[in-house]
Nucleic acid binder design. Structure first.
Lengths: 167, 167
DNA sequence: ATATCTGCAAATCATTTGCGAAACC
DNA sequence: GGTTTCGCAAATGATTTGCAGATAT
């Protein structure tokens, strides 16, 4: 038997632990969202988080997911990302400074870190007269040998439009 | 007398030239927006472009600015940027691959280019099994010696919220 | 002439928020 | 028990769009 990353034997998920440590009031829905987050290895948007949470307990509303995700971001437990596509995506704060490579065909996100890049960024900022507070690097790439299956341009109504489209 | 970058003696602005070259129908409002863009050295958002255009001719609507800016982006004349703050910002396509340093206190954007970074990005993508299609690097920094004047957190209603706030 | 563009207002979309009811410490 | 959170629906803010009239080629 393997215990999911979320809980050790019906216990407390990693994210829930962090919430408790910061003194957050743990409601059922927060516990649920924490568990969903702990089980997620990807970078879901709010809609997706809601879907996953709703699947486990349909008594949760998307407004609560929005509120919780924002709260956790303010508490430094989550980080908001914008990869284009008009929706914010979230990932747990943790693993040191890393960056993202977005597969332009599938929208999949791959994480990576690179020491040389960290040093270079700091150096560039200094050259311009700034102390580096933060930085982000996003690579958009295509899997090496392959013909892409010609993705249809979605162009859906309303707002939402950004550098590139998401999956 | 110096001629503004937009037009050589009542003539055609740089951006308008590009529009004509791509065979766009040149209406008065497009000509105006083209001129405003040609005169802008910064990275204005649509609201700001509308303000600048409206100042020259109040017979223009913001819907037209949105439509034009999108058209020019599709034609490869403009590039859309997202520096956080919930509004897209635009800059003319031109000067080779460059990146941005955002002053976290003022929201000002400084452009820079760095050969070593270009090479490094390509190398990282390759290491991960991808051909680099595009990439973006954004540095967030604070001017070197100085105490920041403690900016109040805006937190305005509605949507709009991103990594960092804009100026 | 005629296909395209513009203005206006209404529609969308992601996200936030007011309010009374329910839950946590 | 009092404060905080929740669900719902309505409000927001950025952006898009339908439609009738105005325009560029």
């Amino acid at each position: 038997m393997d215990t999911p990353a979320s809980a050790d034997r019906e216990g407390i998920s990693r994210i829930e632990r962090l919430c408790i440590d910061r003194g957050l009031k743990m409601t059922g829905q927060r516990r649920l969202i924490a568990r969903v987050l702990s089980d997620s290895a990807d970078h879901p948007d709010v809609e997706e988080l809601y879907r996953r949470a709703h699947a486990r307990d349909s008594h949760i509303s998307i407004a609560t997911v929005y509120r919780t995700v924002r709260l956790l971001e303010e508490k430094g437990i989550l980080e908001r990302r914008d990869f284009g596509g008009g929706r914010a995506r979230y990932e747990p704060t943790e693993h040191g400074h890393h960056h993202h490579l977005i597969d332009v065909d599938t929208g999949k996100v791959i994480e990576f870190a690179d020491e040389r890049h960290e040093a270079l960024a700091k150096e560039i900022a200094a050259r311009l007269g700034f102390e580096l507070v933060d930085h982000r690097l996003e690579l958009f790439g295509r899997r090496f040998p392959e013909a892409k299956p010609a993705a249809p341009a979605p162009r859906r109504g309303g707002r939402a439009r950004n550098g590139r489209d998401q999956a």
